[in-house]
């Protein structure tokens, strides 16, 4: 057992957990944050994607203890009260989700992608960078539209800020 202290969505949580506890289990079972999902057992589906210290990572493949002291963002922490994050809003507007199971991971991967590229994205790049997130419902078409739309918003907002 280890005592693990991780900040999740801005709140510090300290829990005593088995050493083999994966980050996704820490989030779902120990913190009750069930928005992050488990879709596979070979680190390939991306449903578990969260952001750890600014990096999009698959939480099914990290031990919670190994990121002791880190800061984690999950889908539950994206919206600002009632105000949705641009990426969430874009997924809704462009029908980028159907069953919703891959969606949290897809959204977190997209949030991180837009930040890393500062919103400068095209279809080919978005498709390439979402290769690690599987969706079985949408055929990806509307997901790509949603991400490009949110990226555009990001560019506009930053261009305005730059002026």
């Amino acid at each position: 057992m280890s005592k693990v202290a991780i900040t999740v969505n801005g709140t510090l949580h300290t829990k005593e957990v088995e050493d083999r506890t994966l980050l996704v289990q820490f989030l779902r079972d120990h913190l009750g944050l069930t928005g992050t999902h488990v879709g596979c057992d070979t680190t390939q589906c991306g449903a578990c994607t969260v952001i750890v210290d600014g990096k999009a990572v698959k939480s099914c493949t990290i031990l919670a203890a190994s990121i002791e002291g880190a800061s984690v963002s999950t889908v539950e922490g994206l919206a600002d009260g009632e105000k949705l994050h641009d990426v969430q809003a874009a997924f809704h507007e462009h029908h980028g989700l159907q069953c919703g199971f891959c969606t949290p991971g897809m959204i977190m991967a997209s949030v991180n992608m837009i930040e890393r590229h500062d919103g400068v994205l095209d279809e080919a790049t978005v498709r390439h960078e979402l290769e690690g997130n599987l969706c079985r419902c949408t055929g990806y078409h509307n997901i790509i539209k949603a991400v490009l739309s949110a990226a555009e918003k990001h560019r506009t907002a930053h261009a305005v800020a730059a002026e």
Binding site: L33, T34, G35, T36, H37, T74, V75, E76, L78, A79, L84, Q88, F91, H92, E93, H95, L97, G100, F101, T103, P104, I107
Partner: peptide, 16 residues
């Protein structure tokens, strides 16, 4: 029409 069910699904409040 955009979907009513999206609210909980895009904020991690789905009930799987």
């Amino acid at each position: 029409l955009p979907r009513k069910e999206d609210g909980r699904l895009i904020t991690g409040k789905g009930r799987f």
